[in-house]
Design a protein around this nucleic acid. Structure first.
Length: 323
DNA sequence: CATTCGTCCTGATAGC
DNA sequence: TGCTATCAGGACGAAT
C-alpha cells in the first residue's frame, strides 16, 4: 500500500535506472491501466516511443517522468543540453502498483499491465514494467504547467518550477521544504470535518494514506474524529510532526510492506511494518500504555469505509462534537 | 462552494 | 471440496 515513503523509494530507484534512457517500445498489456489517458492506449504508446527520460519527480503519491523528444512536446524550446520538458509520463501506484526493472529474459508477472522497453545501458535491465493487481493505479501522459507558488513541482534531481497538470491540485507533503505549516493550519481550522479525513485529503497535505494517518494520530495522541475546527496550533503541529517522523523512519527503512503486494523498483520488499504502533494491531496491547504500566487494547473502528486503529486510553474519542 | 459518498478492481481468506 | 461473502483502500466524480 504505497504511501509517500514507498513512492519516494520507487522514485530514487527509478532515478538510478532510467534517467537519460530512451523509451524504444511500449506494450499496453491491459488498457485499463492507462484508462486515465483519455486518447487511448495507441496514443499513449505512440507518444512515448522515442522519448527520453529527463528526470523523476514526486509530489505526494504522484510520480512523473518529464520527457524530451516526444511528438507532443513543443518543438524547439530550451538549449540542446538542457531541454525544457513539456510532457511527462505520470504514474500512480494506487493500492498495489509496482514499477519493476526486469531483464527481457524474466517471465511476465501475472498482473503485468504495461511494458516499456528502454535503450540499452551497461549493466541495467532493458525493461521497465508496470505491474498492478488491483488496477487502482495507472499510467498516463500529462502536460507540465508552471507551479502556483513558483516553487519546484516536487522532489526531483533537477527541480524546475513545473508540475504535472494532473497533480497540480495536490498539496505539498510534510517532508517538502516548501510545505507551509501556517497555510496548512489555517485551512485545517476552516474545515468542518474530522482530523483523519483532513489528513487523508491530498489537497490539504499530501502523501498520507490510511496507515500513516493512524500512526501519526497515535503518536500525537489524537482521535481520528477530532473536529478540525477545535484543533489548537500545538495539536496540529504535533500531528504534522508525527506524520513527518513516521514517514522519515519508513523512508529510512525502505518503505513499509504488508502483504507482499508492494515491492520497490528493485523488487525488494520493505520491512518497516514491524515498527507499527497502531495500524493492523487490533486486540494487541498499546505499547505506550504498556510502558507506563497501564493495559489497554488497540481497537478497530469503521471510518470512511476503512479501518481505523486507535488506543481508547491515550487517544480518547471526542464527546458529542466537543472533546 | 465544501463536504461526503459510491465506485473502480482482484486475490486472499473465512465460513459453511 | 467448492462455493459465496468479506475485506483491503487511493482518488475521482457524483450527489448532497
Amino acid at each position: 500500500m504505497p504511501e509517500l515513503p514507498e513512492v519516494e523509494v520507487v522514485r530514487r530507484g527509478l532515478v538510478s535506472w532510467v534517467l537519460g534512457r530512451t523509451i524504444t517500445a511500449v506494450e499496453v498489456v491491459d488498457p485499463r491501466s492507462v484508462r486515465r489517458h483519455a486518447l487511448g492506449p495507441e496514443d499513449f504508446a505512440g507518444n512515448l516511443e522515442g522519448a527520453r527520460v529527463l528526470d523523476v519527480v514526486r509530489r505526494g503519491k504522484f510520480l512523473w517522468l518529464p520527457l524530451a523528444d516526444t511528438p507532443a512536446a513543443a518543438p524547439g524550446g530550451g538549449a540542446a543540453d538542457a531541454p525544457t520538458p513539456a510532457v511527462a509520463l505520470m504514474a500512480h501506484l494506487g493500492m498495489s502498483g509496482q514499477l519493476l526493472m526486469q531483464d527481457s529474459s524474466a517471465s511476465d508477472e501475472r498482473p503485468l499491465k504495461v511494458r516499456l522497453r528502454l535503450s540499452p545501458a551497461e549493466g541495467m535491465p532493458e525493461q521497465l514494467r508496470f505491474v498492478d493487481q488491483r488496477i487502482f493505479g495507472g499510467l498516463f501522459l500529462t502536460s507540465l504547467v508552471p507551479t502556483a507558488d513558483g516553487g519546484p513541482g516536487g522532489l526531483a534531481e533537477t527541480p524546475l518550477p513545473l508540475i504535472a497538470a494532473e497533480a497540480s491540485h495536490i498539496a505539498r507533503d510534510p517532508l517538502d521544504p516548501y510545505f507551509s505549516f501556517d497555510e496548512f493550519y489555517r485551512r485545517l481550522r476552516a474545515r468542518k470535518t474530522g482530523l483523519k479525513r483532513a489528513l487523508l485529503d491530498q489537497g490539504l497535505v499530501s502523501g498520507i494514506g490510511n496507515i500513516y494517518a493512524d500512526e501519526a494520530l497515535w503518536k500525537a495522541r489524537l482521535h481520528f474524529a477530532r473536529p478540525t475546527d477545535t484543533l489548537r496550533r500545538a495539536d496540529a503541529l504535533r500531528v504534522l510532526d508525527a506524520a513527518r517522523g513516521v514517514m522519515t523512519d519508513a523512508l529510512a527503512a525502505g518503505g513499509t510492506s504488508f502483504d507482499a503486494l508492494y515491492v520497490n523498483v528493485n523488487g525488494a520488499s520493505g520491512y518497516f511494518d514491524r515498527s507499527l504502533n497502531a495500524y493492523g494491531r487490533e486486540g494487541e496491547k498499546c505499547k505506550r500504555c504498556a510502558a507506563t504500566g497501564l493495559v489497554s487494547t488497540i481497537r478497530r473502528d469503521q471510518f470512511m469505509n476503512r479501518s481505523s486503529y486507535t488506543c481508547p486510553v491515550c487517544q480518547p474519542r471526542p464527546r458529542n462534537g466537543r472533546w
